[in-house]
Design a protein around this nucleic acid. Sequence first.
DNA 1: AATACGTACAACCGCCCTCAG
DNA 2: TCTGAGGGCGGTTGTACGTAT
Length: 350
Amino acid sequence: MGRAPCCDKANVKKGPWSPEEDAKLKSYIDQYGTGGNWIALPQKIGLKRCGKSCRLRWLNYLRPNIKHGGFSEEEDNIICSLYISIGSRWSIIAAQLPGRTDNDIKNYWNTRLKKKLLGRRKQQQAAAAATTVEHDHHHHQDHQQSPTSTSNGLSNSALERLQLHMKLQTLNQNPLLHNMLWPKLHPFQEKLLLQAMNDENSNNNIMQLPLLPQPIMMESPLSNIGKEIMINPTNIASETMAMTATTSSNTTTTTTTTTTNGILDHSNCSPSMMNNNNINVSSYGGAFQLGGGDFMMGNLDNGTTSSLVWWSNEFETNDVNYDRSGSFSSSSNDSSWDCALRSSDDAGLF
DNA sequence: AATACGTACAACCGCCCTCAG
DNA sequence: TCTGAGGGCGGTTGTACGTAT
């Protein structure tokens, strides 16, 4: 059963916003706020616009401190690492980049960054030609039938992330991703990726990529090796998770903030992977072991900032598998990290 | 100069989730 | 417990602008 439309489509203006409309909307919200009801807003102001359209215009363009264009290399790195880790959760990625909107990042990724990293499709095909049968150019036509997945069940996003992952492995000195090291794919994951790219006629719709049973070894120097980052119990079940861990040389202080639907929440809910609430930065030379759980992690380290991505199949507690993705960032005197994690359900895509 | 093609980005569509009643 | 309105989100489209032929 369909839903009633949120507004009278016939009497609503669409298309680009005029400066007058912008001014009306901005001055009203500056003065009175949104009132928590976008649908009613345009009527109050006298705008012939859908409430959703007003919301979008405000969030993506009119609200204060919005940045447009001019993405920095650091922002590129964060977007890339988060995309590999959590996929197209643009709102979560945007939350890590102050002043950026999910729409902006999504557009930037689709139109520029993806091409910058992966190159053109023909180049991808050429790279894959040694081991695969060329078929990739059918993807656009596939949209009618299967807009979000390949015939073997891997989502296009997951496939793209795998391709990106493999591509980055081959680029020891990618000028864009300076000093960035990525964990290698497990041979079995690699095999499945190639199979996914080859197997045009496969009917397998439940393909899952297994996780590695051990941490990835890497050689990236990381200033925090040997230190221990304390993480307080955190409500993992929250829609969006944000944690901040602050460390200093010998003493460890922890500030943990969990955001549940925009509301700060410090309730107790410790996932099994965070044994003793410790994230132990082990001597794996950039790989991290976390509470003894099975996980993989990659990092990028430019000397002052390290960004980590990791995923685990131990992301569960109280017999509940959480299917939410989350992210946390931590800062210390000598480094700051931005991390993203994936739950076991999603991890199969990687 | 005209046309075709490519790119960037604002905006829309429609599905999903949350939560109040 | 159920229902539906509103908000959030990702995917997609429309269009202006730039570049190549």
